[in-house]
């Protein structure tokens, strides 16, 4: 992996302030608002075998929510 080189103070982002996995309810609302609920349901049920992220372990839930964050970015919605 290439090292990240910071040259100005404005570029510095403290590690403790790094973005965390998005909140589940906010993310679900964003996916619904974007009209992408079909993808939320398909991936959750087909891949993770559950109907709600609450049924997943914390690690799997974060993984799923990251997929949904990527979904929103992929459709630019």
């Amino acid at each position: 992996m290439q090292p990240i080189i910071i040259t100005t103070l404005e570029e510095y982002y403290p590690e403790h302030a790094q973005p965390k996995v998005a909140d589940k309810n906010d993310l679900k609302a964003s996916v619904e608002a974007a009209g992408l609920s079909d993808m939320w349901n398909m991936i959750l049920t087909f891949d993770y075998g559950v109907t709600s992220p609450d049924e997943l372990s914390p690690e799997k839930r974060d993984e799923f929510l990251n997929v949904m964050s990527l979904l929103l970015k992929a459709f630019d919605r």
């Binding site: 973005p19 990251n66 990527l70 970015k73």
Partner: peptide, 10 residues
């Protein structure tokens, strides 16, 4: 494939 945080499109 499974980035720990999502800051941009993959």
């Amino acid at each position: 494939a499974a980035p720990a945080t999502v800051s941009k499109a993959l």
